[in-house]
Simulated assay, not measured.
Amino acid sequence: MNQPYAEVIGDPIAQSKSPVIHGFWLEKLGIAGRYDRHRVPLDGLADYLATRRADPNWRGCNVTMPHKLAIIPLLDRLDPLAAKIGAVNTVVREADGSLTGYNTDAPGFLEPLQPLLEQTHLFRMARVLGTGGASRAIVAALAERGFVLVLAGRDPAKAQAMLDELTAQDDHHAIDLAHFAEPTDFAFDDRAQCLDLIVNASPLGMTGQPPLAFDFTHAPPGSVVYDIVTSPLDTPFLKDARAAGLQTLDGLSMLIGQADVAFERFFGMKPPRGFDPELRERLLA
């Protein structure tokens, strides 16, 4: 059928929720287009792009593991944010057939935090757990919004190298992830004008993965706890945060936010976000 289409690529790809999100928005807007999923093995990535580049109906693709880094040398240009982060999760076919790489994880992550970020704070600190690809986008995004970062990983040296690469200040901290597993009696600043985030940017707690060991005595009063895991959506980390009386954000918040940016680049229209509750119901069905 001669209609515009986009897709998500990766290996494996069957678990991706992106077709549900984009398909929902196409339906609501009445756009005669489609959004598919396509399994692309690592050794087939170059051939895939060569074939799609020649198709004027192909608007681009979202990119999941293991291609977020491997796809970069196959593109014609990189958006500055994607270049800084060093990872691409969205490829757009331009009118001349050239391919541009973007990273929508950073704006997608920040989207549900916007009401907080619009406020003025005495101090902003984020404890970011994990040093993988998603963490790179989150670290870059938060550093630009004035957060002091505590980046925790199994290898603190890797965490420090990431901070050195992605941030301009030297007041950030890299520590061992195990530090947060044990209780603390630290006296946190409890002023209401402080913004504290605790972000699980790791796969820990995801279905099939080990749990995330985090003792909530490490959470300052009023912290916002954000888990980017989407399966399960309500992770033990988020349940423990609510039990501690803290506000939480789940992984669908970031997933929908990053899809919003990609959808507009693919199909030229802003998605109808007034239907987010219905979209969430469909994603959870």
Rank of each mutant, 00 (worst) to 15 (best):
A141P: 07
A192I: 15
G44V: 07
A219V: 04
R242I: 09
T184S: 11
R59G: 00
A46F: 09
L69R: 10
A32Y: 13
P156S: 05
S135Q: 07
G60R: 02
F180L: 15
D11P: 02
F214E: 02
D196E: 11
V88F: 08
G60I: 01
Y35F: 12
L26D: 01
L110P: 01
R52A: 12
T230S: 13
L78E: 01
V261D: 00
E111F: 11
I71S: 04
A14W: 10
L81D: 13
F216M: 09
L246T: 10
D176H: 15
L204Y: 10
H173C: 15
V148E: 13
I228A: 03
P277D: 12
S16E: 09
V128W: 02
F109D: 00
A70T: 09
A174K: 02
M269V: 15
P19D: 01
V224Y: 04
L26M: 03
A134E: 01
D79K: 06
V91A: 10
V40W: 02
L249D: 01
V224T: 13
N89F: 10
K28D: 05
G60H: 01
E94Q: 15
P4V: 05
N62P: 05
G251V: 08
L122P: 00
R52K: 15
E27L: 07
F267M: 05
D164R: 13
E94Y: 02
Q114L: 14
V224L: 13
A181D: 06
A126S: 07
A46H: 12
L117M: 10
A201W: 03
L122F: 11
L249N: 01
L42F: 05
A82H: 06
A262M: 06
G205C: 12
P156K: 08
D215P: 08
K68N: 05
D190H: 10
L122D: 15
S98D: 03
A46D: 13
P80T: 12
D105F: 10
L75S: 07
A213V: 04
D43W: 07
G101I: 00
A83V: 08
I198E: 01
E264A: 14
A192K: 15
A178S: 15
E278R: 11
K239H: 14
H179T: 15
R265G: 02
H67I: 10
P41W: 05
G222H: 06
K158Y: 11
G205R: 04
T100D: 00
K270Y: 10
K28C: 07
N89P: 12
G132T: 08
Y35W: 07
A50G: 01
